[in-house]
Write a protein that binds this DNA or RNA. Sequence first.
RNA 1: CGGGGCGUAGCGCAGCCUGGUUAGCGCGCCUGCCUUGGGAGCAGGAGGUCGGAAGUUCGAAUCUUCUCGCCCCGACCA
Length: 566
Amino acid sequence: MRFREMLIPTLRENPAEAEVVSHKLMLRAGFIRKLSSGIYSYLPLGLAVLRKIEHIVRQEMDAAGAQEVLLPMVQPADLWEESGRLKKYGPELLRFRDRHGRESCLGPTHEEVITDLVRNNVHSYRSLPLNLYQIQTKFRDEIRPRFGLMRGREFIMKDAYSFDSDDEAASASYEKMRYAYHRIFERCGLKFRAVEADSGTIGGSFSHEFMVLAATGEDTLVICPKCSYAANMEKATCMPPPALENPAFRTMEKVSTPGKRKVAAVTEFLGISASQLVKTMIFMVDGRPVAVLLRGDHEVQPVKLKNFLRADEVELASDQECFDAVGVPSGYIGPVGIELPLVADREVMSLSNFAIGANEKNYHFVNANHGRDFEIARVADLRVITENDRCPQCGAALQLTRGIEVGHIFKLGTAYSKALHAVFLNEEGRETPFVMGCYGIGVSRVAAAAIEQNHDKDGMIWPLPIAPVAVIILNLSPKDEEISRAAEEIYQALRCEGVDVLIDDRDERPGSKFKDADLLGIPLRLTIGKRFVKEGIVEIRQRQTSKTLDVPHDKAFAQLMNLLRP
RNA sequence: CGGGGCGUAGCGCAGCCUGGUUAGCGCGCCUGCCUUGGGAGCAGGAGGUCGGAAGUUCGAAUCUUCUCGCCCCGACCA
């Protein structure tokens, strides 16, 4: 590749439209250009990165026994009607009519299409297991696209779907994909974690998210620095609290706490710490109020509550809803005598002689105890994990860190195969729905995440395996025949070895070339300038470490090849 | 959908409040000279429906209304 001939429109200044670093840098480096909100064109270097990622993905998917297909992007709405998702998916599904008036939509995902394909063509357990994948542009009409490729409306995704004869086989398929995903992100040269995730409304039994670690990530994850434990906030748990042993119960007393409603106000007034207060929060669970007991210094994780109660919707009740449900203003609500369904976070169970609302305006109880003053029937881990908590596996202090979701794998079970009547005949000749799994990787998002994780003030810093090119050769004097010949020689030698190399043969001043090389983030830079004429020396510089090596011209090729070896 | 902001040359911006010749600046781009190891210098030049429409006015980038687009925060989200 010759810089002079390529479309690499680098910008000196940050475009006003970009906020996050990957977006800014991709625009500045001429990797992408926006066509419309959330919709981007990939220029040659941007495309080169995508191809690198895709190549790794293909190799690992193939190695895991998956087969590549390419499914339609335009899909008949009928199929979505059949699966029940036409309504459920909502406005994110872009719909339109073709010239015959047939309802169609742009595929945001392909469970329906793949299930249709398989139900029409696979009929026997002998054909299983089957895993099909594709790499394709998806369209989701996001409410608010943002951050460039991080949350586009149109984006490139690898999606795979597995079909198995039973749950055990499906688990094996899932594990294969989990392994393949580890290999993929490992090979991309990214720092990542696989975290246990909430499987959401899809209702699968199991799910992992693959998160690229980056300070600018949108998601918070909980990781253990000592062992392999990692989970997202919605799923993360911690060491259970110690059991309550032989508590010395004191007498419960009602105390006046006029105007003290917030935890901070009540505890200050009573002269106790927040961990000695149990707050009673009212949640609207599918429209009905439920009381949730929680230690004063803890927060409810709504997804945990939702899953525990097997609800569809969980929302903190408004003050009015609280009053309507209990007849007491929020702030004084308590578990004694309350007539709502009551659930408690498990941390509450290890407390004794704590303060609670008295279910009477301007009053609290102190020295309350569960089992004596009120009963708790249902207990679960319902709270948000913090850095003060300990790893549920090994007990080490947990850490919170930020990440970008680049992959998600699900065990789907038979939700889609049942809805679409996708069945095969098992060994006993009985019709059985396929047990499915689905596995996604946001290919274009991986590119953005790689930049979020690897950049500095000068530009991108690509990990070698997914760099658009491995080496950039700076010919500092394209008009100088001797220098140009020396640059060409190495350029050709690298090309013969199959190395992706870009030669900057532009008639620009050296400063521009150095700046652009840094901006593009190409792992290795070879500079050939007047030092070559004077001393026969060329310079090799590593983008990531800034380490530079002065080498004689005839050693440069071998040296570069050496650095390119893993 | 709610809140906020922005649309002026390829990019970044000023001008608008307080209407008045030919709409500016920096970068980029073209030509020439000069220069060549971290975005040089000089000279000359091209490039604008001031997002669009309607209105007010003798006169609109500037005021009014409508409209389109983009960005940020929120709700939402594999």
